[in-house]
């Protein structure tokens, strides 16, 4: 380390004494902005989006998608916090501030910021991958379930359950899993009601 470099570090260390409060305020502003953005994002996701998209899935698919989304949520939140930490730092202990102490601290901080950025990137990529995984699970299980609006039809002779095809003045037509399309004369139908599943 040259004498000129040592002197410059010493001058910088002395300057720090006069910039402590502005530096802390700048740090607080950065964290405020980051946390406000994160809170807004989570509020939009949780309050506006809700869980409607998962409600129609089979139980195992719903559980899998929920787990994936939860893990993605945690990873994305962690990644965001790590990115804010890398950008704006975090309050830490005081040190005996001299030029060489500042130089050592700067080297350590560079390593910490580099690590935080790497982890933030990894968390965000994994979070997005998990969100895509949850979407794939939802799509795959949705297409494999043909009875999206099952109904229960009570007639003079019994009860049928299936997907409603058509209702008019003459007939009620449904598609059942066992018999396929079944057409019932309207006069024989006592009631038609929704069913959760057949």
């Amino acid at each position: 380390m040259s004498a000129r470099s040592d002197r410059r570090w010493a001058e910088l260390a002395r300057e720090v004494e006069f910039t402590r409060l502005p530096e802390l305020r700048r740090q607080a502003e950065g964290w405020r902005t980051g946390l406000t953005g994160l809170t807004a994002l989570l509020a939009v996701l949780v309050l506006l989006k809700g869980r409607d998209d998962l409600a129609g899935l089979p139980a195992w698919a719903r559980d899998s998608a929920t787990g994936l989304l939860l893990a993605a949520f945690l990873l994305l939140t962690t990644g965001s916090l790590l990115a804010v930490r890398a950008a704006h730092g975090a309050p830490e202990r005081e040190i005996l501030l001299g030029g060489q102490a500042l130089r050592r601290w700067t080297e350590q901080e560079v390593a910490r910021v580099t690590r935080a950025l790497a982890w933030a990137s990894l968390c965000c990529v994994l979070g997005v991958v998990l969100v895509v995984g949850a979407l794939v699970v939802a799509w795959v299980t949705t297409t494999s379930d043909p009875a999206t609006h099952p109904v229960v039809v009570r007639t003079n002779s019994g009860v049928l359950c299936g997907e409603l095809i058509v209702v008019d003045r003459q007939r009620v037509a449904i598609r059942t899993e066992t018999d396929g399309r079944v057409t019932l004369p309207r006069a024989t139908v006592l009631s038609v009601g929704p069913a959760r599943a057949c």
């Binding site: 720090v16 402590r20 530096e23 740090q27 730092g89 830490e92 040190i95 005996l96 501030l97 901080e109």
Partner: peptide, 10 residues
């Protein structure tokens, strides 16, 4: 050599 917080850290 004053006690001071150099800026940011974890």
């Amino acid at each position: 050599f004053p006690w001071a917080r150099p800026g940011t850290g974890s």
